[in-house]
């Protein structure tokens, strides 16, 4: 127990990095994903084709590769040539990658809304934007909560990938202690941290699902 208390500060620092990557990614990837979803169902073929290609690229290559590319290769790409520090590079990779997954969830949600809802809104005079904002998206949110919850929980654990950029997230912090002290108990403590985070998320999403289900009763 003493030992665990002794290593706790380092693990909490690691968890702090993990939570930062998680929260920033979530806050940025959700709106970007929504924009991509709307682009994917756009009536302009150029937009939907471009978004389709983007989603294929982001879902078709490993997140770790994308992160390594943005950190190590982007500085040498002609015309772009941006050199990002490790933390922003990780965030950019996570946001671009997760937005693609969220986009597909949102698109499926939007397309699951009955055509009659659009027609009902149209004959009342609502514009496309008003129909989306007032009628379609609020109904979509309820339907996509379970897959979004899944994706969000995956994100918590995917944050451990940032170790490849030598950042001290929760898992890398634990591994550092394991190698230093020749004991595996830091792994157990790290696992407990992850479980706690995903438990909180699970509860949060359960609450949201209940709240959005109110109109079905």
């Amino acid at each position: 127990m003493d030992y665990i208390l002794r290593i706790l500060p380092q693990l909490i620092d690691g968890a702090g990095i993990t939570i930062q990557v998680f929260l920033i990614t979530l806050v940025l990837a959700v709106p970007l994903g929504l924009a991509l979803a709307l682009g994917r169902i756009s009536r302009w073929p150029a937009v939907s084709v471009a978004v389709n290609g983007y989603i294929w690229l982001m879902r078709g290559t490993p997140l770790m590769l994308q992160m390594l590319f943005i950190y190590f290769a982007l500085p040498f790409v002609p015309g772009i040539g941006i050199r990002l520090p490790d933390f922003p590079a990780a965030i950019v990779a996570f946001v671009l990658n997760y937005a693609a997954y969220f986009a597909e969830i949102f698109r499926a949600g939007i397309q699951s809304i009955d055509r009659g809802q659009y027609e009902g809104a149209k004959v009342l005079g609502l514009t496309y934007a008003q129909t989306m904002r007032r009628i379609v998206l609020p109904q979509m949110i309820r339907r996509i909560l379970p897959p979004v919850s899944n994706e969000t929980i995956t994100l918590v654990k995917d944050t451990s990938l940032i170790y490849v950029l030598a950042m001290n997230d929760l898992l890398r912090a634990a591994r550092g202690i394991v190698q230093r002290d020749f004991t595996t108990s830091p792994f157990v403590v790290a696992a407990a941290f992850y479980l706690l985070m995903t438990l909180l998320l699970t509860w949060g999403f359960q609450y949201l699902e209940k709240r959005y289900a109110a109109h079905d009763e």
Partner: peptide, 17 residues
Amino acid sequence: CRRMGMVFQHFNLFPHM
């Protein structure tokens, strides 16, 4: 078109309202 109201076979009420 706003001058015409319409009632549908399947109502098309907004279920979240």
